[in-house]
Computed example of a mutant assay.
Amino acid sequence: MNADNLTQILHQGFRVTLGATSSMIEMLQDSHKRNENLEKIQSQWSQLAQEWAEKGEQTEEEARKFVDTILEQQSNSGATETTTSTSSSSMTTTPVSVSEPDSAEDLQELTAQIAALRLELERLRGSESSN
């Protein structure tokens, strides 16, 4: 098996999981969608997996944009704080190690965080459209 194929399969699986989680959240929030999605599950499993993968890809992109925006805002505010501080003060940074989630509990926690980010993004979009 080619490493690229394995990477693609894993990424597709991640997107399917992300899309399924996103759909489950929608189902919990809206009873009409719940009934609609349950009928889909019973009749069209492979097509639904493809839809979940697409929805997962979209959610992944939205989450990346959201996180990038937050990081950009923090770096901009950090730059402002640095320029306004006196030259005698020094800024220390602590390296943060990033590791792969290696347990089901970590994966569930990350999934919950993604869901929370998605809800926050939807809330922000709703407040922008009302303005």
Rank of each mutant, 00 (worst) to 15 (best):
M1Q: 07
A3F: 09
D4H: 04
N5Y: 04
T7M: 11
Q8S: 15
L10M: 03
V16C: 04
V16L: 04
G19C: 00
A20N: 03
E26G: 15
D30C: 05
S31P: 15
H32G: 13
N35H: 07
E39A: 15
K40G: 08
Q42D: 02
Q42S: 14
Q44C: 07
Q44S: 09
W45P: 06
A49G: 09
A49I: 12
E51C: 12
E51V: 12
W52K: 03
K55M: 04
T59K: 13
E61P: 01
E62C: 06
E62Q: 10
A63V: 10
R64T: 06
R64S: 06
K65P: 00
D68Q: 02
T69D: 13
T69F: 09
I70A: 02
Q73G: 02
S75F: 03
S77P: 00
G78Y: 13
G78R: 10
A79V: 00
T80C: 05
T86H: 10
S90C: 08
S90H: 10
T93I: 11
V96E: 02
D102Q: 10
D102G: 08
S103K: 08
A104P: 01
A104E: 09
A104H: 04
A104I: 07
L107P: 00
L107K: 02
E109V: 09
L110G: 11
L110N: 05
T111P: 01
T111C: 08
A115G: 03
A115D: 04
L117F: 06
R118F: 05
L121T: 11
L124G: 12
R125F: 04
R125D: 12
G126C: 01
G126K: 05
S127Y: 00
S129P: 01
S129Q: 13
N131L: 14
N131R: 15
